[in-house]
Design a protein around this nucleic acid. Sequence first.
DNA 1: AAATTATTTTAGGCATAACTAAATTATATA
DNA 2: TATATAATTTAGTTATGCCTAAAATAATTT
Lengths: 223, 223
Amino acid sequence: MLTQAAEDYLKSIYKLQEKGGKVSTGILAEYLDVKPASATGMIKKLKSMNLVSHQRYQGVTLTDAGKAVALEIIRHHRLLELYLNKALGVPWDGVHEEAEKLEHVISEDVEARMDEFLGYPTADPHGSPIPDKNGVVPETQSIPMTDIQNGQSCVVAEVSDDDSALLRHLGSFNLYPGTAFQVLEVAPFDGPFTIDIAGQQAVIGREVAKNIFVNKVDTIDIA
Amino acid sequence: MLTQAAEDYLKSIYKLQEKGGKVSTGILAEYLDVKPASATGMIKKLKSMNLVSHQRYQGVTLTDAGKAVALEIIRHHRLLELYLNKALGVPWDGVHEEAEKLEHVISEDVEARMDEFLGYPTADPHGSPIPDKNGVVPETQSIPMTDIQNGQSCVVAEVSDDDSALLRHLGSFNLYPGTAFQVLEVAPFDGPFTIDIAGQQAVIGREVAKNIFVNKVDTIDIA
DNA sequence: AAATTATTTTAGGCATAACTAAATTATATA
DNA sequence: TATATAATTTAGTTATGCCTAAAATAATTT
């Protein structure tokens, strides 16, 4: 059995690897809010278990075994988030924190039952893809909202899950995955976005927009 | 926050206290499968937190604060058992093990939501009373099956929850809480019980019967 | 090549929780 | 009441796990 800390390291390496290939000790340490020396220590431990590859000064990479573990934890986390939201009505800004604790203790049996209850879903309440039980991650090709031009219509695909204040803010505009909106105006000099959501106007700051990923659509369905 | 070990000690002290008043270090150690010296160590720690009273060689007792914590954990455990069984279909011989891990991690919010989903239940799948959110334990007055005489009819009230093989065995006879049966014969010299469950005969050994608690009834409802 | 930056090693700290062995205290027995 | 037995406590040890600061080393930049 792996410790909770080891599982957290693997999960973090996976997520950082997604964004930018090799994961340096420093980046990993910063992400986990520990000192680089601590990260080096855990990396050595994970390497001895053949869960990561690592050569000094070259950064870490997950091995196939390590990736499998990381994906399993991520699957736990995202299924739990969706289950807590759908089955127990936990608001979407609260599920992350709860899942963070439960993901390390839930059994495969209970996970399978939640999966079945939910109808084998492919995304959590924030739009993040849920790996299947073999570790296959559903493909997504969303783009950052900050790349969207004036007049373009889009649908929210995914938002960051770990900042509950941000999630409450997005919720107040109904900016959940699946929600359509049109960009009315992008203020110059990296200014805020004015958007139209189902007839309501809203102003979304750039720092907020960075946490929103969307798919472009040709026209908005007017419901 | 308390450690998991500390919570387990408090829970154990509560349970042992239920049966026989003062809880000696030795009994506690045996129950938790540690050496007496280890129990002494944890008792000192809990005492320093005002969760137990203890005077050397005199055994431990929970303080009001300690009892509140113990009841909270027990409530977590039993609600989880029932939730896993009713909402996710986990078989009754599997819920204990799962709840044992989850009870230390679940939030009060999620607990309240499970409670509501279940309709504010008062007993878990094994018939053990579920303390309410203020720590009030529903009264029960069941008696050991081993005290039942020939010819007496009873209804299963509660069974031990921690031996899954035993639970599967009882399940094979339909001996769930609420099930009625009649004692047809008690073999002499502390021998087994022959009983009638809905027309089916079964032989229940004494060691098994010790784990079953019942309420006497005058007659069996013939369904 | 020197200076800067990043990483790794070393050595040690702290928390938790278990253990053994020996000393102490309580209880039972002769 | 003295003594033997049992239970408990103390003291010191072990093991795990994760962390840090400081020093050493490697890589990168100027």
